[in-house]
């Protein structure tokens, strides 16, 4: 039986300051995950060599892998930390902020770019208003539903973006998660009305074509969202859209 949990954490005091590493050691307990260990650590943040340091800043909320707050790089791979069980991890457990996103402090990052992406692709249904119009949306077959439901579970954790070699400060690629939302919205019976507009938005620079089909995104997504299927389907939709633009009417 293990006696200790060893952590190696990349820390950073602020967005502009250089990162540094610290190692910690906590007594082993069963049923722990990375968030629960960080919670124990913040009660007594002492490094392995006995220095009292500031508690590690990080983000968490639901603790059941549905809010997307707690994503970070764990042993090199981006994933939600609340569902990363200690017993399954190789030690020392190396924690780094979620790659590609600007660090706020320690393991806390700023994912505003995801939100901007969603705004950019108009990831919503244009409804007249939130009043009751005494009618729901048109019917949706169970088959269509189950295809769409997969995409509706995206919790904007950003893991897919962090793992995408095309996404990062070096490019203006919007990233896989917002693209998958275009797939979702375009399939909705009324969301379809704005399909052309959404497609045009992802046909611009930084859009769909900046995906290089590395497919890391789909491998790391904790919610198993079929991102590459969405990318393929959007490929088809944009192909047809451009043909329509070039050769159809208007």
């Amino acid at each position: 039986m293990k006696e200790w949990i060893h952590l190696r954490i990349r820390r950073q005091d602020g967005p502009e300051t250089p990162p540094y590493w610290q190692t910690f050691r906590l007594p082993y307990a069963p049923d722990q995950n990375v968030v629960s260990v960080l919670m124990c650590l913040r009660e007594n943040p002492m490094t392995t060599d006995g220095r009292q340091v500031e508690p590690v800043a990080w983000d968490h909320n639901c603790m059941e892998e549905v809010c997307g707050s707690c994503a970070m790089s764990i042993n090199g791979v981006p994933r939600p930390s609340c569902s990363a069980l200690i017993d399954d991890l190789e030690q020392p457990i190396v924690l780094e902020p979620l790659p590609k996103f600007p660090v706020v402090r320690d393991l806390l990052v700023d994912r505003a770019r995801m939100d901007a992406g969603l705004r950019r692709v108009k990831a919503w249904i244009e409804i007249d208003g939130i009043w009751d119009i005494h009618e729901g949306a048109p019917r949706i077959s169970p088959a269509e539903w189950s295809a769409s439901y997969l995409y509706s579970r995206c919790m904007s954790c950003g893991c897919c973006m962090a793992a995408c070699p095309q996404f990062g400060p070096q490019s203006d690629f919007i990233g896989p998660a917002p693209l998958a939302q275009v797939r979702l919205m375009n399939a909705h019976p009324t969301g379809r009305y704005d399909k052309t507009e959404r497609l045009h938005r992802i046909m611009a620079s930084g859009g769909l074509s900046d995906c290089g089909n590395a497919q890391n995104c789909v491998r790391v997504c904790p919610k198993e969202i079929p991102l590459t299927t969405a990318i393929g389907e959007l490929g088809r939709q944009t192909t047809l859209q451009s043909l329509k633009d070039l050769f159809g009417q208007g």
Partner: peptide, 25 residues
């Protein structure tokens, strides 16, 4: 020009498609 955008991290993500992506460039 496209290749300039690549930030492949093969050791982090040793998946076949990622290697192909890198090798393509």
């Amino acid at each position: 020009a496209i290749s300039g955008q690549m930030r492949a991290e093969l050791s982090r993500y040793p998946y076949a498609r990622n290697r192909f992506y890198w090798l393509q460039r």
